[in-house]
Structures are given as C-alpha cells and as structure tokens.
Design a protein around this nucleic acid. Structure first.
Lengths: 191, 191
DNA sequence: CTTTTGACTTGACACTGTCAAGCGGTCTGG
DNA sequence: CCAGACCGCTTGACAGTGTCAAGTCAAAAG
C-alpha cells in the first residue's frame, strides 16, 4: 500500500514536473524531492530512471487515450467523424502535454517496452486509432495501409507542429488542420 | 584557422559519437576527448552544449538534404517520381542516422534556431521537399496543404518506424512503404 | 519478545555542464 | 626590436545528475 502509493505519487510528480518545467527538468531527484522522500527512494519502486520514465509514459498513454476517446465521442458517428475525432484528440494531447508527448515518442530508447503496464496502455491508445480506421478500405494493397497512413500523418503533423518546424511552410497564417487534411485524403469506406 | 578547424572537428566528433554510441552518449566532454582537447575547450567555439548541438544539427541538415537530393536525382523525372525520391531519401536518412535524426527533430528545445548556419541548412532541406510538392494541386483550400500533408506523412512514418511504435500495426510482415503510401494519395498535378 | 523483512535514508562515487583563473603562444603598436 | 594585449586552450573547481552500498527503523512473523 505505502509502496504502491509512493510509486503512484512519484509518477504523478513526474507528470507534474513534465507539465510545469519541461522535459529536461524531469529528474529522479526532482521527483523524489517533490514527493518529499530521499533521492534514493525511487530505486525501491523502479529500476532506475528508465523504470520511472516507463511508468510515467504508461500513465501518459492512459491520458492520451482518454483525450482521444473524449474527442471521438463528441464527434459525429460517421466513419469520417470518428477518425477525425481521434486525430483531433491526438493533436490536442500533443499541444496540452508537449513534454509528455515528446517523452512518450522519444526514440532515444530509455524505455522498457516489455513493461506490462506500458504494453497495456499503449495498446489501448493504438486500438482507438485502429478501430477508427477499420471502416476504411486500405489505400494500398497492404491491409494496414490506411491506419499507417492516418497514424503517420497525424503523428508527423503533431511532431512538426510541436517543434515549430512547420513555420517555414506557413507563409500565410496557420498550417492546415488535421481535419482538413483528412478530408483531403478522400478515404473510401468498406462496401 | 585553428579555431575553425577545432570547431569543425568538434562537430565531426559529435556526429561520430551520435552514430556509434547513440544520443545519450553525446556529451561536451566526450566530443572534446575524442578530438583530444580539454573538456572546457568547446566553450570557446560554442555557447555551451546547446551551441554545439546546434552546430551538429546544422551539419546534419546538410547531410539530410544531400541524402534526399541523391535519391531524387536517381528517380524518374516525373512529379510522382521526384516527390517519391525525396521521401525515400527522407526515410533512408532516418534509418542510416537514427540518433542524429532524433536529435534534429527533438522538441526538447535545446537548440538555437536563430543560428544562421542552422537556418540556412534546414531551409535547404525544406526547400527540396517544397519544390518536389510544387507541381501538385493543394489537397485542401490551404495553399501549402500538399507539402504539409507529404511532410507530415513521411516524417510521421520515419519517426514511428524509428521508435518501433509501428510494430503493433504490423500483424503481417513489414509496414507499407512511403512509396506505396504516396501512390495511395493519388495526388493531382497542377493543370 | 526476538527475529526478520522491507521501505526508506545517508553517504559516497563517477559523471555531466559551466564558470573563473591561469598559461603560453602570436600579433600588434610604439 | 620588443613590451603588452589578445586569444586559444588548460586546469581546477562547483553544483547537479544517476547509481550503488551500507545503515536505520518500524512493522510483521516466529
């Protein structure tokens, strides 16, 4: 119990630090200090920094999936409405939690992908996108082509927008929205 | 002269460390040690670690543009051939230099975007993609919609593939290639 | 009541980036 | 010709990081 609450509190502290002070402020010692324990306490609940990060990311994927599901439920029940809702939630999460989003998709490899909690929460997030793409025909002969297309598109847009890379392409105002781009794809539903 | 060569050698050392030992091995002291100077020598040529990283990224964008241009020149001179060549080079660079690619598009914000060398080399890379998309009609009413669509798509695919996130969507073998996905977009050329 | 277990602390270690001071050449001004 | 300033670089220190070993201390177990 005490063990479980400290573990949970450390993850919560990490999420708060991420939100308030950004990615490079996320530190084992900072999490411990925020919770009010010694700097070595986290070692009894996580396998080092990478373990804590894995726990934070697992929790992050839950929030991520919640955000996507929220926007999906508020969208019209048509195939296009559902996938647009998922992608709108995808974009919204990346803007509301930029540091967490960057950490979750960090390719630096400091994350234990065999962690069961991580596997479960990330699978749920992927399942939402998968289901939203299911009504559509594959855009190529590859069976998963449509979901890979949509996922790559929304993820690339979120990442580039977060890094402000897209600003060079915005000679006039804002970039196109994910909703506009999805409309432009003219996806065909399964007959 | 000596100043310029040490600056260049530090950037080269950083690129090598990135390639050989990954992102978290990239260190001011490691770069200095590899070149054979003291740990404080880099401070005379870069404004701290962020300055060195900016220099490495600037050089990285040159290699990035070279890779894209190389594949574009080897592709058929049709609009679809050219944009496919650019995107193939984009994917190839991300696979051949994963750590550098991750660093270049790191949203952690430890990079000085006002650096003139960075601005120049990144602008060249963007220009290649921009030009390859120029023959196509915008996919929405937004004038830059097509290049944002293509850029997001290829960047998302590269990033997700690098982080091995796409593996959950690959029930059967490999994911669709960027070439297949571009074909599936059915982009229309300007009349 | 004693023992043992486990959560947590304390203290140390190597490593990081950054800063101040100093050294040793080279170039300049007289 | 040659003192003095300058500049590239070194040395040494500092706070901060993750990680490990040892110790503390209360609660559970015998």
């Amino acid at each position: 119990m005490t063990q479980d609450t400290l573990r949970t509190r450390l993850i919560t502290a990490g999420l708060e630090i991420l939100q308030e002070n950004g990615l490079n402020a996320l530190t084992l010692r900072a999490c411990a200090a925020r919770v009010g324990v010694s700097h070595a306490a986290p070692a009894h609940h996580f396998s080092g920094l990478s373990g804590l990060i894995t726990g934070i990311i697992a929790k992050g994927f839950t929030q991520f999936a919640d955000t996507m599901e929220e926007d999906r439920k508020a969208a019209p029940p048509t195939p296009l409405g559902q996938v647009t809702g998922i992608c709108t939630g995808y974009m919204r999460f990346s803007k509301e939690h930029p540091a967490l989003f960057a950490l979750m998709f960090n390719t630096s490899g400091e994350i234990d992908k065999t962690d069961p909690e991580f596997a479960a929460t990330s699978a749920r997030a992927y399942g939402l996108l998968h289901d939203a793409c299911a009504p559509y025909l594959p855009v190529t002969e590859h069976p998963n082509a449509t979901e890979v297309l949509v996922w790559s598109l929304v993820h690339g847009l979120a990442t580039l927008q977060l890094g402000e890379s897209l600003k060079v392409a915005e000679d006039n105002g804002n970039p196109p929205t994910i909703e506009e781009l999805l409309n432009g794809l003219s996806l065909k539903v399964h007959p």
